[in-house]
Design a binder for these strands. Sequence first.
DNA 1: ATCCAGGAACTGT
DNA 2: ACAGTTCATGGA
Length: 302
Amino acid sequence: MKWTDHGSSIELYTPLAFNFAQCLVFLDRSNQETLHRINAGYLVKLLKFDEEVVFCQIASKQNSMHVNFPLTSPSAATRKKVAAYLWQWFDVERDLSSFYEMAHKDSILQPLGQKYYGLRIIGIPDLFEALVWAIIGQQINLTFAYTLKKRLVEHFGESLTFEGETYWLFPSCEKIATISVATLRDLQFTVRKCEYIIDIAKLMAGGALTTEKLLQKENDQDIKKALMSIRGVGAWTADYVMMKSLRCPTALPMADVGLHNALKIQLGLEHKPTIAEITQIATQWKGWQAYATFYLWRSLYD
DNA sequence: ATCCAGGAACTGT
DNA sequence: ACAGTTCATGGA
């Protein structure tokens, strides 16, 4: 991580193949998003580390992201954690040169690699948030998924209001571990999803499931198996979480409807491609399946 | 109305 | 292992 701690602000130095504006397009894809906000080109996000809430304004500069704390004065240790979070969130560490090399030779990715050059996979560093968001999104349209997430966040998350706008933190697993299925049902989650989410909250609150434990596995197959052993986590959710939270570059959520739609559009097909066709197409993406998927998702927001 | 949505568990073969 | 069914509700 390359950064400077200025005390009242911090600065993260981003590589050439990094485009903040492209990342903002993805971050701005829903007007129901409650976990960050975009105001006149800068990004606002609430974070919390060790009981310390941090209000961050993130602006893009020439070769850096500049982060201000207009409402709180985080400690030096917390400033470092903020830097690490943002570095993770935007996948800044990743060297994309071989991805673009591959994309250049792939007829589908070639135009996307050029158009969205510098776009990073916007992650979900918090494993609990990633799992819950994936489960919420199972088999419902994205608009409704955002509605459900908003309800969950606004019922069980912490918030902070600044200049008339309220900013939210995703609820902790400890908090969700204490609520009942009936309580979640009231927010119009299905009984199954209530059970999945509360069970996972308990697993994580108890320390049985952590990012560290998953990353200690021998290989990605073992990580996927461990995730899929959790009730409510199938292949799609496992790959989604590996892609967005565990940062596995080869994760490929094969059953993803967004991926199917993007491919249909990019290939000019009448119908969505079959799993067999996608498997065939994806052989080109070896090592970069997650980035290929993300660039295709991005193509849905032009 | 009708189809489908950033699927997964369950059931029967 | 594999295919069909159920869950369950809103968006377009």
